[in-house]
């Protein structure tokens, strides 16, 4: 088995869930549980594909996907933050809306081909033997997703705005008493989560598969949600989780293709087993890391 090709495949496979999960992490850090990741991803997948096909530019496709999914997520924000609807139910509704809407929009794009996203051949770094081809010959979205993880980590840890976002998520009443605009902060976080999920979806339809098929994200959004829990709401954990899930999928397929005799079921099961294990360890330690106000409705009068 060629490790160069393997690592390259893992990076492609992990990128969509990494993007969606890092967005959801920010949303949840602000205290909002948006279960509509799958719906936003599939919307991003179809919008990204449609725009890339009509304009011939995959970059515009990615931008369009981010905008479209952010707009969709704002409808969730409007319902949960201003009209105080139940977040779990609304999030599930968002998934259903996204799946239906994408099928409707996508019906005329079946069987079409997307313009390909060029791979960046980074000078110098790309010329390093082995490592160059393994790590430095991907398209820009792969690097952007990694940069985004670092950016989110730095934002949450070192900036004032990040501190406010965390304060809103930990205890919205205190944050409100301090004069922070809880609802506005949360709307911004929801839109960011939507945009990231849209990018992740577009990566599936423009790079990983590359075509539009109804229902093509096939549960990636739910895995992204699981990864956020797995990470105990830390960006580095999201990175590890996404590469673990993506890695196991790809390694499992490669082991099969190479004809090894490791039981397939065991490998497919392993990320879920590890998630359960991590959750057990976290709860045994007593600190699960979930934001204090996660999923709770907030109204300035209460």
């Amino acid at each position: 088995m060629d490790p160069v090709l393997l690592v390259a495949s893992i990076m492609v496979s992990a990128t969509p869930i990494l993007l969606a999960a890092i967005g959801e992490l920010v949303t949840e850090k602000s205290g909002v549980l948006n279960l509509g990741v799958e719906g936003m991803m599939i919307t991003g997948a179809v919008m990204g594909f449609a725009i890339a096909v009509s304009t011939g530019s995959p970059v515009l496709g990615f931008l369009g996907a981010a905008v479209a999914s952010a707009v969709l997520s704002l409808s969730f924000g409007l319902l949960t933050q201003y009209l105080l609807s139940n977040q779990v139910a609304t999030g599930l509704g968002l998934t259903l809306v996204g799946l239906g809407l994408s099928a409707l929009i996508g019906s005329s794009y079946e069987g079409q081909r997307a313009p390909t996203l060029p791979k960046l051949d980074i000078p110098l770094l790309g010329d390093i033997p082995v490592l160059g081809r393994m790590l430095f010959s991907h398209d820009f979205v792969v690097y952007m997703s990694l940069a985004l993880v670092v950016a989110v980590w730095a934002f949450l840890k070192y900036t004032r705005a990040g501190l406010i976002l965390r304060a809103v998520g930990e205890n919205h009443e205190s944050a409100h008493a301090l004069g922070y605009k809880v609802v506005r902060v949360r709307m911004a976080a929801i839109a960011f989560g939507g945009a990231c999920a849209g990018l992740g979806g577009a990566y599936v339809s423009l790079v990983r598969v590359p075509q539009w098929t109804e229902g093509m994200t096939a549960g990636a959004g739910w895995i992204a949600l699981a990864i956020v829990v797995f990470s105990s709401w830390r960006p580095i954990g999201v990175l590890v989780g996404a590469y673990l899930f993506g890695g196991v999928t790809v390694i499992q397929l490669n082991l099969q293709a190479a004809g090894t005799t490791v039981p397939v079921e065991l490998l497919s099961m392993s990320p879920y087993l590890i998630t359960i294990l991590v959750l057990v360890v976290i709860s045994a330690r007593g600190a699960h890391g979930a934001p204090g106000s996660l999923g709770r409705p907030f109204h300035a009068s209460s």
């Binding site: 090709l5 598969v209 075509q211 096939a218 099969q256």
Partner: peptide
């Protein structure tokens, strides 16, 4: 390569890539 699904475009694509890589 066994996928245990009839329809999952992303997984089908990954499996194809894995076979090509091998």
């Amino acid at each position: 390569v066994w996928l245990n699904t009839w329809f999952d475009p992303a997984k089908e694509a990954d499996a194809t890539q894995a076979l090509l890589d091998q």
